[in-house]
């Protein structure tokens, strides 16, 4: 069960650990990107957007389809250009998709029965995964590796290498850039202000001339665009996607959002990184079989013992 490096009886402890940390940060970046969608939507309308994981999966399919379109039909040879184009297209289309979903399935339910949007979102999640299954087929969709470049940072005993792949670097850089851009939007623009106003008090915001409906829609769309970035990077990293890929990353990203403190944007990113690290380290040192059990257990433990999360505000019960 123990991977190659570890069989050397702690010989390469440092190397194995660093390698897993690298891997963990990579996956964690993706979780963080998805988690922002959960946390923003929860912050603004108090709803767990259950379909968000499947939106992520659909965005990976958008990326897959356009990657194939660009490389096989239009014959674009530059992978860098293809990747950038694919990511942009996937962001736009996923945003559009989520805009439509929000208009159809969530907006009519605003202000009604509290469970209705959650049930509607669960329904949407079923619709998205089954729609992809029907439209694109139930099989795994592998793509040839986008890049095989791997940099060996150093070698431990018996030549055990600590690797950092170009894919991982791309994921880190893209995530960092997008988070910076996103942070700017939320902190410095009118949209961000409107968003924060709606978070505090929707009625008051609307009285002060904030277009609440549009702000909520845009919140969904921004979350979706970030999920689409994660989707594209996910496809590039693993080189395969399947219609059922939404659920588990979705739940893990939600865990990340909760761990970081739901409603808190830095919290979502921090939570994502932590979940990624815990997951890979658990898989390395405890049990690969129970890797997902670990993620779910963290969710349970965090919710029970610190429901406000790491960076969230504690809630005082109103009597």
């Amino acid at each position: 069960m123990l991977p190659l490096g570890a069989t050397a009886g702690g010989l390469n402890f440092m190397e194995v650990f660093v390698q897993q940390v690298i891997n963990g940060i990579t996956i964690g970046s993706l979780y963080g990107l998805i988690a922002i969608g959960y946390t923003m939507v929860f912050g603004i309308i108090g709803m767990v957007n259950f379909a968000h994981g499947d939106v992520f999966m659909v965005s990976a399919f958008f990326a897959l389809i356009f990657l194939l379109l660009l490389t096989s039909w239009f014959g674009i040879a530059s992978m860098t250009l293809a990747l950038i184009l694919v990511m942009v297209v996937s962001m736009v289309l996923t945003g559009l998709l989520v805009w439509a979903i929000e208009r159809i399935a969530y907006a009519p339910l605003r202000g009604s029965f509290r469970l209705a949007p959650l049930i509607s979102a669960i329904g949407m999640s079923i619709v998205l995964s089954n729609f992809i299954q029907v439209a694109q087929g139930p099989r795994n969709k592998p793509i040839p590796p986008v890049t095989r470049d791997v940099y060996t940072l150093w070698e431990g005993a018996n030549g055990y290498p600590v690797n950092l792949s170009l894919k991982q670097i791309i994921i880190w850089v893209v995530t960092a850039l997008l988070l910076a851009a996103f942070w700017y939007v939320v902190q410095k623009t009118a949209l961000g202000r409107a968003q924060r106003a709606c978070e505090q008090d929707r009625k008051m915001a609307s009285l002060l001339g904030v277009n609440v409906d549009r702000t909520i829609s845009l919140t969904f769309v921004i979350g979706a665009a970030l999920a689409a970035v994660a989707g594209t990077l996910f496809l590039m990293y693993y080189g395969v996607v399947v219609f059922s890929d939404g659920f588990t990353p979705g739940v893990k990203a939600f865990t990340a959002a909760v761990l970081g403190g739901i409603g808190s944007l830095p919290g979502a990113v921090l939570g994502g990184l932590l979940i990624g690290l815990i997951e890979t380290l658990w898989g390395q040192y405890v049990s690969a079989d129970y890797q997902n059990v670990a993620a779910f257990s963290i969710l349970v433990v965090v919710l029970i013992f610190m429901p406000q999360g790491l960076l969230g505000r504690p809630e005082v019960e109103k009597v």
Binding site: I104, G123, S125, L128
Partner: peptide, 16 residues
């Protein structure tokens, strides 16, 4: 697929 659509549809139509 239809099950999911029905879930959404019924919620929008009759949230209760």
């Amino acid at each position: 697929l239809i099950f999911g659509l029905a879930m959404v549809g019924i919620m929008v139509w009759k949230p209760r």
